[in-house]
């Protein structure tokens, strides 16, 4: 059974906005990178998964449960970081976490203390006065504290400094080890490259690429064959650029970074 299954999901907001016939699945224990330019439909897709929006056409399920009708059951075992984090501004950080624990029906603090330590989060002080990064950390703790098996993370590292981004990547890797299934949208290419098994790229509401991180990179490998004046020169050239020599010809591969691949995918619309 697929952990997350989206089939034929459509939501037309008019003027080309929305998502159109979106279909993909995420398997148990997989970390799925969900990428795309701003306004491509990532958050709309996530809102359907969270049961905030009712599918007008198509369906989406998490662990076999309908995202709209069985949202409450799904949420028992799901962690969520919203793209635009809106916390209870009038509370202080500790109150917020305690409230959410009780509200969820947790009997203890779960992983909250450990996570707060890991992200160096000081939960004292009103949330209203916290920096963007602090709020984001609070959002991370709230999403992971009940050790959910499914995680939906909408730009989870926005506002975090590079050190904390690193710690987040570590956390994701540990969660993967633990067996969690993760859908993560992000604009940080490096982060995606380091954590995701598979990547889906969405543009203007359509899925334009869906493949493993590895395959996506392989597909974009370009190889060039150069002919040189002598075998020795070809061997030297191949050695210098990590290619292979054959007679007086040397073949070298140019691997493009994921960043370039994404930029190409994102920008296609402009070229078309």
């Amino acid at each position: 059974m697929h952990v997350i299954e989206i089939s034929d999901l459509t939501r037309d907001y008019g003027q080309g906005k929305g998502i159109f016939r979106l279909s993909f699945t995420i398997e148990e224990g997989e970390v799925f990178g969900f990428l795309g330019p701003n306004g491509a439909g990532k958050t709309t897709t996530i809102r359907h998964l969270m049961g905030f929006l009712r599918p007008r056409q198509g369906s989406c399920t998490i662990r076999g449960m309908d995202c709209w009708r069985q949202a409450e059951q799904i949420q028992k075992d799901l962690g969520y970081i919203p793209g635009e984090l809106a916390l209870f501004e009038e509370m202080d950080g500790r109150e917020d976490l305690t409230f959410l624990q009780r509200y969820r029906g947790m009997t203890n603090a779960g992983r909250a203390p450990e996570l707060m330590e890991r992200f160096e989060l000081d939960p004292r002080g009103k949330i209203k006065k916290m920096s963007k990064g602090m709020k984001q950390k609070l959002g991370i703790v709230a999403a992971f504290m009940h050790s959910p098996r499914t995680l939906i993370l909408d730009e989870p590292t926005s506002g975090l400094d590079p050190l904390m981004q690193n710690r987040f990547v570590e956390l994701i890797r540990e969660e993967k080890q633990r067996g969690a299934t993760i859908l993560m949208s992000s604009h940080m290419f490096e982060e995606v490259e380091r954590t995701c098994d598979r990547i889906g790229i969405i543009r203007a509401g359509h899925l334009v690429a869906l493949d493993s991180t590895q395959a996506l990179r392989q597909r974009h490998v370009r190889s060039y064959t150069v002919t040189l004046e002598s075998d020795a020169a070809a061997a030297a050239f191949a050695r210098d650029f990590g290619g292979q020599a054959q007679g007086n010809q040397a073949t070298v591969c140019v691997r493009r970074s994921l960043e370039e691949i994404f930029l190409e995918q994102y920008g296609q619309e402009v070229k078309e």
């Binding site: 969270m50 049961g51 905030f52 949202a71 409450e72 059951q73 949420q75 028992k76 799901l78 969520y80 919203p82 635009e84 809106a86 916390l87 209870f88 501004e89 959410l100 509200y103 969820r104 029906g105 709230a142």
Partner: peptide, 15 residues
């Protein structure tokens, strides 16, 4: 409006 309804609904509590 503030968006914090997301926190209330991202929990095993029915609407």
């Amino acid at each position: 409006e503030r968006g914090s309804m997301a926190c209330l609904l991202a929990a095993p509590v029915r609407r």
